[in-house]
Amino acid sequence: MSHKQIYYSDKYDDEEFEYRHVMLPKDIAKLVPKTHLMSESEWRNLGVQQSQGWVHYMIHEPEPHILLFRRPLPKKPKK
């Protein structure tokens, strides 16, 4: 599979999560399941490479070739 064609967005966040999206080329996108969110082993098997802790959290129906990921931000110590 062509890992060079996978595009990784910059990371962005809110108060709770860090987010990123990953755009897959058409040949890989056709392998994305339409019935469920992928486990880490499933998206890694497609060639997506990112650190541990990312969760495929949403399917964007109009653009199924874009995978939406998030992971919890580290808890800030209370002052």
Results as ranks from 00 to 15, higher is better:
72 P>D: 05
69 F>C: 01
73 L>F: 04
15 E>Y: 13
32 V>C: 06
37 L>I: 05
13 D>F: 14
40 E>M: 03
8 Y>M: 01
59 I>H: 13
23 M>S: 12
44 R>G: 00
13 D>K: 14
58 M>T: 09
28 I>L: 15
11 K>T: 14
4 K>A: 03
75 K>R: 10
70 R>M: 00
61 E>H: 08
75 K>S: 13
26 K>H: 11
57 Y>W: 09
47 G>N: 06
16 E>A: 13
24 L>N: 02
18 E>H: 00
29 A>I: 03
1 M>A: 13
37 L>T: 08
61 E>Q: 11
30 K>S: 10
59 I>W: 13
77 P>T: 12
41 S>M: 13
51 S>Q: 09
70 R>A: 02
70 R>Q: 01
38 M>N: 01
49 Q>F: 03
17 F>C: 02
76 K>E: 13
65 H>M: 07
2 S>N: 15
59 I>V: 11
31 L>Q: 11
39 S>K: 09
54 W>L: 01
11 K>M: 12
23 M>A: 11
5 Q>H: 15
71 R>V: 02
72 P>M: 07
69 F>V: 03
21 H>F: 10
31 L>K: 14
38 M>K: 03
7 Y>S: 11
62 P>N: 15
12 Y>T: 13
36 H>E: 06
1 M>Q: 11
71 R>E: 00
41 S>V: 12
23 M>G: 07
64 P>D: 09
11 K>P: 13
45 N>Q: 12
29 A>C: 08
26 K>P: 14
38 M>D: 00
4 K>G: 05
69 F>R: 03
7 Y>F: 06
1 M>R: 11
60 H>R: 08
9 S>T: 09
62 P>S: 15
6 I>D: 15
51 S>N: 08
34 K>D: 06
3 H>Y: 14
43 W>L: 05
69 F>Y: 00
63 E>C: 10
67 L>N: 05
66 I>Q: 04
69 F>A: 02
60 H>C: 12
19 Y>N: 01
28 I>E: 07
24 L>H: 01
24 L>S: 04
74 P>W: 09
22 V>K: 01
64 P>C: 05
50 Q>S: 02
79 K>D: 14
42 E>C: 05
54 W>K: 00
28 I>R: 07
63 E>W: 07
73 L>W: 06
31 L>H: 11
3 H>E: 14
22 V>M: 05
48 V>S: 00
16 E>R: 12
14 D>K: 00
36 H>D: 03
26 K>I: 09
8 Y>D: 08
63 E>P: 06
37 L>A: 03
48 V>T: 06
57 Y>L: 03
6 I>R: 08
3 H>I: 15
78 K>Q: 13
39 S>C: 10
6 I>N: 06
11 K>N: 02
67 L>G: 03
35 T>Y: 12
38 M>T: 03
52 Q>H: 13
73 L>H: 09
45 N>Y: 09
63 E>G: 07
68 L>H: 11
73 L>A: 07
74 P>G: 11
12 Y>N: 03
68 L>Y: 15
55 V>Y: 07
13 D>Y: 15
16 E>S: 14
8 Y>C: 07
56 H>T: 04
77 P>A: 12
2 S>L: 12
34 K>H: 08
46 L>D: 01
1 M>N: 15
25 P>W: 02
79 K>M: 10
38 M>A: 03
20 R>V: 04
77 P>D: 12
67 L>I: 07
79 K>H: 12
54 W>H: 00
28 I>M: 14
44 R>W: 04
65 H>D: 12
6 I>S: 01
57 Y>S: 03
66 I>E: 02
40 E>D: 06
21 H>Q: 15
51 S>T: 08
12 Y>I: 03
58 M>V: 06
75 K>A: 12
10 D>F: 00
58 M>H: 10
60 H>V: 09
4 K>L: 14
77 P>G: 11
76 K>S: 11
6 I>V: 09
65 H>S: 11
54 W>S: 03
55 V>M: 07
1 M>E: 14
61 E>N: 10
57 Y>K: 01
24 L>A: 01
34 K>C: 07
65 H>W: 10
74 P>R: 13
19 Y>A: 01
11 K>D: 04
43 W>G: 02
16 E>L: 12
20 R>Y: 06
61 E>W: 06
33 P>G: 03
13 D>E: 11
12 Y>V: 04
45 N>V: 07
41 S>T: 13
50 Q>I: 14
33 P>N: 08
44 R>A: 01
31 L>P: 07
47 G>L: 01
77 P>L: 13
68 L>I: 10
74 P>F: 09
28 I>A: 08
7 Y>M: 14
56 H>V: 00
27 D>S: 11
48 V>I: 15
48 V>H: 06
38 M>W: 02
3 H>K: 12
40 E>C: 06
2 S>W: 15
77 P>S: 13
8 Y>W: 02
64 P>R: 10
43 W>H: 03
17 F>D: 07
15 E>V: 06
64 P>Q: 07
68 L>M: 11
38 M>F: 03
57 Y>H: 06
27 D>T: 08
11 K>I: 14
43 W>R: 04
28 I>Q: 08
4 K>S: 13
7 Y>A: 11
39 S>I: 06
29 A>T: 08
60 H>T: 07
36 H>R: 14
38 M>S: 05
58 M>Y: 07
6 I>Y: 10
22 V>S: 03
67 L>R: 02
35 T>K: 13
27 D>R: 08
53 G>W: 00
20 R>K: 13
33 P>I: 04
40 E>F: 06
78 K>W: 10
77 P>I: 14
20 R>W: 02
50 Q>N: 03
57 Y>E: 04
33 P>T: 03
22 V>I: 10
62 P>V: 13
15 E>C: 06
56 H>Q: 06
54 W>N: 06
63 E>V: 05
8 Y>R: 04
79 K>P: 14
59 I>Q: 11
62 P>G: 14
1 M>P: 09
52 Q>A: 14
9 S>L: 11
2 S>A: 15
46 L>I: 09
28 I>T: 09
11 K>V: 14
9 S>M: 11
62 P>E: 15
78 K>H: 14
75 K>D: 13
62 P>C: 14
21 H>P: 02
65 H>R: 10
76 K>C: 12
44 R>V: 03
61 E>Y: 09
6 I>A: 11
70 R>E: 03
16 E>W: 10
43 W>V: 08
71 R>K: 11
2 S>G: 15
60 H>W: 10
10 D>Q: 14
78 K>A: 12
64 P>E: 08
4 K>Y: 09
50 Q>L: 15
14 D>V: 02
34 K>F: 01
75 K>M: 11
22 V>D: 01
65 H>F: 09
27 D>N: 11
23 M>V: 15
1 M>V: 11
28 I>W: 08
25 P>D: 04
